[in-house]
Simulated assay, not measured.
Amino acid sequence: MLRAAVPAVAHHGRDPRGGELSAPRLRTGTPERAGLDRAEIDSLVSEVHGLTAGERPWAAGAVVVAGRGPVVAVAEAAGWAVRYAGYDPVADRGVELPPERRVAMTVDTPFDLASLTKLFTSVAAVQQIERGTLGVDALVGAYLPEFRGAAGHGITVRQLLTHTSGLRPELPLYDCADAEERLAMLRAEEPVSPPGSHVYSDLNMLLLQHVLERITGRGLDVLIHDGITRPLGMTATRFGPRPGAAATEDQRRPWAKADRGMLRGEVHDENAWALGGVAGHAGLFSTGPDLAVFCRALLAGGSYGPARILGPDFVELLLTPPGLGFALDQAWFMGELAGRGAAGHTGFTGTSLVVDPATDTFLVLLANTVHPRRRPADSAPRAAAGTRVARAVRAVRGT
């Protein structure tokens, strides 16, 4: 079993003099030490390996990291970070690399997070809400008056965070001639549905990125680094390029929106690529162990070790239905973890994470499902993994 090193555990609470002690750090332990049933966790590991097996696997490779409380009960890698040289559209299959040229997946392999980036943008926004520099119900037009479409329809920051702005899912920014044309397109974009109606949209996080950069005077990459990843010690989490990352797609038209060839370490999302790799909706790369730290900080009320990225009340705001950036209780990718306030997200490249405050558990499942080519989404394996973790808790409780 390939396991990543994690920091030693610390203690949490108040010392006798009234000062705050550190929140517990993650440590590697057995399923039993984590309060999880070993048989269910062993089945989870076996099933993740099965996802990468065969001629047409669900993913070329995968990493699963799961635990409860401060204990990482499993950190396992399966399959290949790089398996294919390209995609053959005539044969409708990947062009296999010879075994000696393949790259094995490891627990510490970075992945293109795709839409998991939205979670970090959302936390960065709630940090500004906590500091009083951003109003959750403020009008976007108050910060970005030149964004005529959003300003003219009274779109609010909360609507961006809950995907209720009415903006369409995306724009073809990748077809624009230059940055000026891309910015003009974003500024003019109007809702396609009445604000208040739910339409999942990458544009929400792109507008939120512009709001954050306007009020802070710093780029989103700096905000996420200084406010989230550096204090949490997430040294493997950053925007690309990441040359050692798991490969994604042989990106070509007509199945893709750009002709870029086999991608590895360059952001997969075409709009994030057109925007230089740093975007509110996509562009971050990270590893399973780093995301486990992120999950643990959320479950611990915004603290990890000596660091605090949010106060408990603002973590609660982030995860209160319908969730600010986070999806709540979505059984289609959380399985039986859903139902009592579980929060998480998926990413188009094959990534996902779930935190379940009710059981103090987390599940990170990273896979390169678009290697060598994108295909219709199948989240059944994600849901199955969530169900294994949920049953691992229930088996220990005897329920």
Rank of each mutant, 00 (worst) to 15 (best):
R308F: 00
R308Q: 12
I309R: 13
I309G: 06
I309L: 15
L310F: 11
L310M: 14
L310H: 08
L310I: 02
G311R: 14
G311N: 05
G311K: 12
P312R: 13
P312K: 13
D313R: 13
D313G: 15
D313K: 12
F314C: 00
V315A: 08
E316N: 06
E316Q: 12
E316K: 09
E316H: 12
E316I: 02
L317Y: 04
L318E: 04
L318W: 02
L318A: 12
L319Q: 06
L319V: 06
L319D: 06
L319H: 07
T320A: 14
T320V: 02
T320R: 15
P321M: 01
P321H: 00
P322T: 07
P322F: 01
P322S: 03
P322Q: 09
G323R: 07
G323M: 08
G323I: 07
G323A: 09
G323Y: 08
G323K: 05
G323E: 11
L324I: 04
L324N: 03
L324R: 05
L324H: 04
G325K: 10
G325D: 11
F326V: 11
F326G: 03
F326S: 06
F326L: 04
A327L: 14
A327F: 14
L328F: 05
L328Y: 01
L328S: 08
L328M: 10
L328H: 09
D329V: 02
Q330W: 05
Q330S: 15
Q330T: 15
A331G: 07
A331H: 11
A331L: 01
A331C: 00
W332Y: 14
W332C: 12
F333L: 08
F333R: 11
F333A: 06
F333G: 06
F333W: 11
M334F: 03
M334N: 04
G335R: 07
G335L: 10
G335V: 06
E336I: 01
E336V: 00
L337H: 01
L337Q: 15
G339E: 03
G339M: 04
G339T: 03
G339H: 04
G339A: 08
G339S: 09
G339W: 01
G339C: 07
G341I: 14
A342R: 00
A343N: 05
A343E: 08
A343S: 12
G344T: 05
G344E: 10
G344Y: 04
G344P: 00
G344H: 11
H345M: 13
H345F: 12
H345P: 02
H345Y: 15
G347D: 08
G347T: 00
F348Q: 10
F348T: 00
F348M: 08
T349G: 05
T349E: 10
G350C: 11
G350N: 10
G350D: 06
G350F: 07
T351C: 08
S352A: 13
S352V: 02
S352Q: 12
L353M: 14
L353A: 05
V354K: 14
V354L: 13
V354C: 11
V355A: 09
D356T: 07
D356K: 05
D356N: 07
P357Y: 02
P357E: 12
P357I: 13
P357D: 13
P357V: 14
P357R: 11
A358E: 15
A358P: 01
T359H: 09
T359Y: 01
T359R: 12
T359I: 08
D360P: 02
D360N: 13
D360H: 11
T361V: 12
F362R: 11
F362P: 00
